[in-house]
């Protein structure tokens, strides 16, 4: 992906900004402007809380290009507390500690760098919840 393609998706990548469907109330991530539940137009922004749990995970030993320096790293599907599944890396965790159902929270991290001279790509990752008792980060419609 080039610079414009990454730029276009910055809000969802940095802050998990998705959409909410006003017809059926479904929370949508990634944003797609059409509700996957009721197929109606849905383009009101909705910022997810970033809380969720691990739905599945895999630790990668043979990476695609651009991810070599991170090996081994763990990727996961996370079930967000508002409902949708999202694919992302886990971070700040040892692969052996990860398990399905593990509570996680979103953090914004470097996804990769396009070489030493190119742009730095930032985006969401998930890490084990630092503390369970904290008041959840509010989710809601973006201002």
């Amino acid at each position: 992906m080039g610079i414009p393609a990454y730029w276009r998706t910055r809000a969802q990548r940095y802050a998990l900004v998705g959409e909410v469907c006003h017809k059926c109330g479904a929370k949508i991530f990634p944003p797609r402007d059409v509700c996957p539940e009721c197929s109606r137009p849905a383009s009101d922004p909705f910022t997810f809380s970033g809380r969720g749990e691990v739905y599945s995970f895999s630790t990668i030993y043979q990476p695609p290009e651009g991810f070599e320096e991170f090996v081994p790293y763990t990727v996961a599907i996370v079930k967000l507390e508002e409902g949708p599944l999202v694919t992302a890396q886990l971070t700040d965790v040892d692969p052996a500690e990860v398990h399905i159902g593990m509570p996680v929270e979103m953090v914004t991290r470097k996804l990769r760098e396009e070489g030493e001279e190119g742009q730095i790509i930032y985006g969401y990752k998930f890490r084990p919840l630092l503390r369970n008792t904290l008041t959840p980060r509010p989710s809601g419609q973006a201002a």
Partner: peptide, 26 residues
């Protein structure tokens, strides 16, 4: 960590600050 830099660390600290402040980021 390999995926951290001043920007990512600043974002996390600022998110906590915003959570404590409880104001509209705009």
């Amino acid at each position: 960590g390999l995926d951290e830099d001043t920007a990512t660390m600043a974002i996390e600290a600022a998110r906590s600050a915003l959570q404590r402040a409880g104001v509209d980021p705009q």
